[in-house]
Design a binder for these strands. Structure first.
Length: 405
RNA sequence: GGGGGUGUGGCAGAGCGGCCUAUUGCACCAGACUGUAAAUCUGGCGGGCUUACGCCCUUCGGUGGUUCAAAUCCAUCCGCCCCCA
């Protein structure tokens, strides 16, 4: 059975009440990454990462909540789904509601009422995705706000300052995410920029570390587009700077899947084994398996939420678009093998109707379902590593997920 | 009874002699989405044939005209709407 037994059933999800004592203990070990088990026939590993707001079990999937909210669902729902950590975005929060306000609210966790670990992205990805609104220079990036057109400058120092004020448990270096395709020369210069920025991020971070009771972790990011030698240079230089965790960025931006796999194979072996490896922006269910197999521990991706809002559901038998005509009279659940609130209480037919009627519940239900799917998927992954049956479990997943193709 | 208006593809609604198988929106059908400017975007949407380029047939209430050419002009019939009595 691939079904999860780890994920707490709905409504009965564990809420970790952290006592004063536990919190102090956590503080003592913030940043500790423990590897509990390694796969016998690939690089997959099972671990735990300590943060100021609790422990994350890896490999982990982190739902994306760019603006301090995982679109359409509540914190309680996230906890019930089994989410252990979520993402926000420094650039977006800096523009609105503003860094000062979040700081005044007592930090991002207080502001949004999320009691578990939180990670902020640096705004590096916005350098890439808001390309038409920015101008790069050696010092940093000048942005034009997508909200009101006002000008802002993000530098490595600025990004870290913003992220320190926002106060997430894990923060990211300000990097440049190169587009795909990307000429070798450009990719090389861009990677070099990212490495230099990483150095500046770390220096600023160390210098301005609050002497508070909470520890924040700054992760480095490897770039280099789809060029193995650039990736390796980036990895070596970034590791030399030294971080408590390493991310691989600039992938899943349109390159073929085998290129992504090749980049992981070229890069991950150069990262310290005893540090967490985070593959940014990934991904699709199949990508998760491929990446864990190659030594990745952390993932984030907008697909479960965004695609859910666009009518697509992930299931163990592949993805389906619930708003398609074929489901109009399908009175079964989205995924018969799923135990999420959408599948336990609603039919494909009804959700199809909700999408056609543009009812908000439609967006919520598929968001809940897709997030549950991903979180549950990582549960399956973790259990398979624990029992050292990862490759077998991966095969089983693929044969079910792609059976109709 | 008198006067005026109107009829366009599933719906709304442009077009008012040639560039019209016919703008646009909605609806409908499908696809995409990977560190979220996304409840978004793209494509299709009369029928048939073709791998494709493309080709053929049939459309603007009905009928009959005018014209080289009609969704567009004229006549007439039918339907609907409004005003006066």
């Amino acid at each position: 059975m691939m079904k999860s037994e780890i994920a707490a059933p709905f409504g009965l999800a564990m809420t970790t009440t952290t006592s004063k004592h536990q919190r102090d203990t956590t503080f003592m070990t913030v940043g500790t990454f423990k590897i509990l088990k390694k796969s016998g026939d690939c690089k997959a590993r099972l671990g735990t990462l300590e943060t100021a707001n609790g422990t994350i079990r890896t490999p982990v999937f982190m739902p994306v909540g760019t603006q301090g909210t995982v679109k359409s669902i509540s914190n309680d729902e996230l906890v019930a789904l089994g989410a252990e950590i979520i993402l926000s975005n420094a650039y977006h929060l800096y523009l609105r509601p503003g860094t000062e306000l979040i700081s005044a609210a007592g930090g991002i966790n207080n502001f949004i009422g999320w009691k578990k670990p939180m990670l902020t992205d640096s705004g590096g990805f916005q350098v890439f995705s808001l390309a038409t609104l920015r101008r790069l220079n050696a010092d940093g990036v000048e942005f034009r706000s997508h909200i009101d057109g006002s000008k802002h400058t993000f530098t490595p120092e600025k990004s870290i300052e913003v992220q320190q004020k926002i106060g997430a448990d894990i923060i990211m270096c300000f990097d440049e995410c190169a587009p795909y395709p990307c000429a070798y020369d450009y990719a090389g210069r861009s990677m070099d920029t990212s490495v230099k920025w990483a150095q500046r991020c770390k220096e600023y971070f160390e210098k301005n570390k609050p002497v508070s009771e909470r520890g924040q972790l700054l992760f480095g990011i490897i770039q280099g587009s789809v060029y193995s030698d650039l990736r390796q240079e980036s990895a070596r230089r970034t590791v030399e700077i030294g971080f408590p965790g390493y991310a691989i960025g600039g992938l899943s931006v349109g390159e073929p899947k085998d290129e992504m796999a090749a980049m992981l194979e070229a890069t991950v072996p150069l990262l310290p084994e005893e540090k967490p490896h985070y593959l940014m922006g990934v991904g699709m269910p199949e990508d998760i398996w491929e990446a864990v197999e190659r030594g990745i521990d952390m993932f984030d991706c907008v697909l479960p939420t965004r695609n859910g809002r666009n009518g697509q559901a992930f299931t163990m038998r592949g993805k389906v678009n619930i708003s398609n005509a074929g489901y109009q009279r399908d009175f079964g659940p989205v995924d018969p093998e799923c135990n999420c609130p959408a599948c336990r209480g609603y039919s494909r037919s009804y959700i199809n109707h909700l999408f056609r009627s543009q009812e908000l519940l439609a967006l919520r239900l598929l968001t809940l379902h897709n997030l549950y799917f991903m979180i549950n998927l990582l549960d399956i992954v973790r259990k398979s590593i624990e029992s050292d049956t990862f490759i077998e479990a991966k095969k089983r997943f693929f044969s079910g997920y792609f059976q109709h193709e």
